[in-house]
Design a binder for these strands. Sequence first.
DNA 1: CTTTTATATAACTTGACTGTTATATAACTT
DNA 2: AAGTTATATAACAGTCAAGTTATATAAAAG
Lengths: 109, 109
Amino acid sequence: MSALAALADPVRARIVEMLAERDRSAGEIGEHFPISQPAISRHLRVLRNVRLVTARGDAQRRVYSLDPTAFDEIDEWVTRCRRIWNRRFDSLERHLDAVAAKKSRGGEK
Amino acid sequence: MSALAALADPVRARIVEMLAERDRSAGEIGEHFPISQPAISRHLRVLRNVRLVTARGDAQRRVYSLDPTAFDEIDEWVTRCRRIWNRRFDSLERHLDAVAAKKSRGGEK
DNA sequence: CTTTTATATAACTTGACTGTTATATAACTT
DNA sequence: AAGTTATATAACAGTCAAGTTATATAAAAG
């Protein structure tokens, strides 16, 4: 599963937001959702697998941290699409400039 | 379905990339995938629904364009998380500064 | 007006994902 | 060592999304 697919789930997106604020244990995270503890645990596993979060042990607890590296992956994709998209208008502009230049050289109409 | 969820599907992500390059008809898009025409048609409907693309008629064809507005939605979410995340280090910095200042004022150890 | 071309919709199947309860693991507490 | 706390895993059920084939629509071409 990709980082993007992982974030498509609203619970996981919210978990990521929570972890942006501060590190939290699995239990702390679970308190904010009306679903069972195992469900949260599996969401956390998914987020670990796509490297959106990391976990460290603290006695019985597992404390989760956001790993913002995965954001870059998404950001880069969006940015790349935007860059390609913008390039279209650049070349359209060049084309229109060329047409305008031709008109000037060759006289009206 | 959110724009993020729509892009989580690899076929749709690829379609968006293709449309960033240039507008294409539904058929043109379909040629690039090993799946049936109806499957492509439904992916396009999903992309239309989340406003990632628009379609205009050209005789029997439907020509699809990227609508990069929806990118902003994703970008904003990612940026917001990053901003919150970065703020953590700002306040950590402030804390460390405060500790350092105290030390200077109060003498060593 | 019948046929062809391009795309969309309908009905259905299948597989993956999210939730559940029950149970295992692992560390702290007494 | 026995009990408690925190989290993970197993097994299973329901939902939903993505694929399929068959069919409908709509414009072009003959």
